[in-house]
Design a protein around this nucleic acid. Structure first.
Lengths: 213, 213
DNA sequence: CCCGCGAGCCGATACGTATCGTCTTGCAAG
DNA sequence: CTTGCAAGACGATACGTATCGGCTCGCGGG
């Protein structure tokens, strides 16, 4: 009956947790997701296998936590000092009044992140895993993607109030018009992902969202 | 030196090939990609393991051929009688002169395909594998995606000549404005993928591509 | 025309390796 | 003294390779 009672997290070793995160990220970028094994992570982290199995249900879960930890750490110091969440999440999308310029700025930054060799392998691995595993995918979307997308919703709503976007447009759909093409090209590698591409997407998309004359 | 000489394909058993295709597709939809094994496929198909290893380099390659075979078979009879390639590939995108209506028709059909439970599991598995494995991804794009996308390019060029799309627009980018959001929502399961969504995407995208007044 | 023969794919299965997830053992931190 | 921890033994799969007869071809001598 006892549903495998949870271990006492207050006694958990932070040192081991971090070592496991680092080892997981390093292995994924070095040998790829398929060939990173739990045993390999444990060995590299100087940790017993059981310590991993005690705290995480799967290899993907380890990588997800490691990735979130990485994103959180790289954002520290960029925020106003409090609890930053992620690079963009901490500061939001700028609102200079020029919607096109603001979006280009953010989408260019997204392009740079996607092309960053350090982030590429873990991001691809998690995305791919989420595509096949609905449960993990939901967690990925909820913990990583949704917070980012919420920023677009905010900025697009402001644009609607400013009259740059038609009132009837659903921000959730407008946002996908921007992000979708970027992700599509990155995921499927159909063509190179460049700043110029991001700019064109913004130009076309905003054109379709603007009020009819 | 002899680079593992290729087997004689003229003596290949078509019966085994088809049995392997069917078993692979069935297992992927039944137990998921991760838990379909080469041994499982061989057992289900009533085939020796070596027969699979002789003709395919990996589990993903088996599934890719099986999927292409499935797509090809389901399109037979729909084409003009000759060598049909795929449902849409055989007939192309209609050109009634109404760009919005034509695109909605095709994107709705794509939505239906993506929501088809028979096609969903193999498509997700192949896409996910291609995201992580660049070599396989390139093959996936080349054999499956590019032929489909070429149809959009054709239709969009016609729209440019008809004056429905600005002359400066690159069809390869315009097409991603349509397909990208659809794939993004389907892959990441952010929100349900419906006909209404396809319609809105077409409305917004075409609005952004149309000539400036 | 016919039959024997070698080549090669086929189903089947044994083999050694790798990874999995669980379980056990001491040890040291709390 | 309780419990997480490092280390690793353990059975269970799945991997990819190597053979083994059995069967079906194509070919060439009779």
């Amino acid at each position: 009956m006892a549903p495998t009672k949870a271990p006492d997290s207050s006694r958990r070793s932070d040192r081991s947790r971090r070592a496991i995160h680092d080892a997981a990220l390093a292995l994924v970028t070095e040998v790829g997701y398929r060939r990173t094994t739990i045993e390999g992570i444990a060995a590299r982290a100087g940790v017993g296998k059981q310590t991993i199995y005690r705290w995480w249900p799967s290899k993907a879960a380890v990588l997800m936590d490691a990735f979130l930890d990485l994103a959180g750490r790289s954002a520290e110091g960029a925020g106003s000092g409090g609890e930053a969440q992620s690079d963009e999440a901490a500061q939001g999308i700028p609102d200079t009044g020029d919607l096109v310029a603001d979006l280009k700025l953010v989408l260019r930054a997204t392009v740079d992140e996607l092309n960053d060799p350090v982030l590429e392998a873990p991001t691809r691995a998690l995305t791919a895993e989420g595509i096949v595993d609905a449960k993990l995918g939901a967690e990925f979307v909820h913990r990583l993607l949704d917070p980012q997308l919420a920023l677009y919703v905010t900025r697009l709503r402001a644009a609607q109030e400013a009259g740059d976007v038609r009132a009837g447009v659903d921000p959730r759909i407008a946002l996908e018009l921007l992000i979708g093409p970027l992700m599509h090209r990155w995921l499927l590698r159909t063509l190179p992902l460049t700043h110029a591409y991001a700019d064109e997407i913004v130009d076309y998309a905003v054109g379709g969202l603007a009020p009819r004359p």
